[in-house]
Simulated assay, not measured.
Amino acid sequence: MNTTETAKPPRVTRRRAETRARLLEAAFSVFAEKGFGLVRIEDVCGAAGYTRGAFYSQFDSLEELFFVLYDQRATLITGQVRDALAAIDDPADVAGFVDRLSATLLLDRDWLLVKTDFLTHAARRPDIAARLITHRAQLRAAIADKLAASGFTVPPELGSIAELAHSVVAAYDGVTVQLLLDNDQPAARDWLARLLTRLGVVAPPRA
């Protein structure tokens, strides 16, 4: 046997994929109900109907599981930005883009509760905070890529596309905080539309 041969990653079976999906779904529900800091691995296993062994076959820790949830939502948000850009015929159609994005962008209160709980958890743990910062930077970079691919020019006062993507995420974060407090999703979407419009998300009409 050639000992230098690179080991192949374990094959992802259907059963293993189902176990992972059920653990993620259960964890999301338990995190939203109890708060991340109050949840134990046993809570997630109990909700999913699995043992600790099943959990550790998929994740190293609750933090590891959270980052999978985060990346799933980041992929969804990036796709929503892409779809909103693709749905407009004119890249100068600010109102059209903002209307589509603010109407569809993920504003799920349970996810916001989970994410906010984890933020405070990470803030007290520098190693986890560093990982969260990296994941958030990846989200902003993905949004910047979609904005750049749409072909519009960022007004000089807004800086670079990367800075604009940072502002879009900041506006989204601000609106979600308000949603946590008043649980008024229509109002949150209205405020998101106003903030995105003021940011000038797409270029003004060309002369």
Rank of each mutant, 00 (worst) to 15 (best):
M1W: 12
T3K: 04
E5C: 06
P9I: 12
P10A: 10
V12Y: 01
T13Y: 02
R14Q: 14
R15L: 09
R16Q: 09
R16K: 10
R16V: 08
A17M: 11
E18A: 14
E18D: 12
R20D: 01
A21F: 02
L23R: 13
L24I: 13
L24G: 00
L24F: 00
A26T: 04
A27D: 04
A27T: 09
F28G: 04
F28H: 15
S29A: 15
S29E: 15
V30N: 05
V30W: 00
V30T: 15
F31P: 12
F31M: 12
F31Q: 07
E33Y: 00
E33D: 12
K34E: 11
G35Q: 09
G35L: 09
F36Q: 09
G37Q: 13
L38I: 04
V39L: 11
V39R: 09
R40V: 05
I41N: 06
G46P: 09
A48S: 10
G49K: 05
G49N: 07
G49F: 00
T51P: 07
R52N: 14
G53N: 15
F55D: 06
F55C: 10
Y56A: 10
Y56E: 05
S57N: 14
S57Q: 11
S57Y: 11
Q58L: 04
F59I: 10
S61I: 04
S61H: 05
L62E: 08
L65H: 08
F66C: 06
F67V: 05
V68M: 03
Y70L: 14
A74H: 14
A74W: 03
L76K: 15
I77W: 04
T78Y: 06
T78E: 07
G79F: 10
G79A: 13
R82Q: 13
A84N: 07
A84T: 15
L85Q: 08
A86L: 10
A87Q: 12
A87W: 02
D90E: 15
P91D: 14
P91F: 13
F97A: 10
D99A: 15
R100P: 01
W111S: 02
L112G: 02
L112H: 11
L113P: 00
L113M: 06
V114C: 05
V114I: 14
K115V: 01
F118M: 09
A123I: 05
R125E: 06
P126Y: 05
A129S: 08
A130Y: 01
T134F: 04
R136Q: 12
R136A: 06
Q138I: 01
A142E: 07
A142F: 01
A144S: 08
D145I: 00
L147T: 03
L147D: 08
L147S: 03
A148P: 02
A148V: 11
A148E: 12
G151D: 09
P155Y: 02
P155S: 07
P156Y: 02
E157P: 03
L158E: 07
G159P: 07
S160Y: 03
A165S: 15
A165G: 06
H166N: 13
H166Y: 05
V168N: 02
V169A: 15
Y172T: 08
G174C: 03
V175Q: 04
Q185W: 01
Q185F: 03
Q185A: 15
Q185L: 11
A187Q: 12
A188M: 06
A188N: 08
D190W: 07
R194N: 04
L195V: 05
T197S: 15
R198F: 01
G200V: 14
V201P: 02
V202G: 10
P204D: 11
P205F: 02
R206F: 03
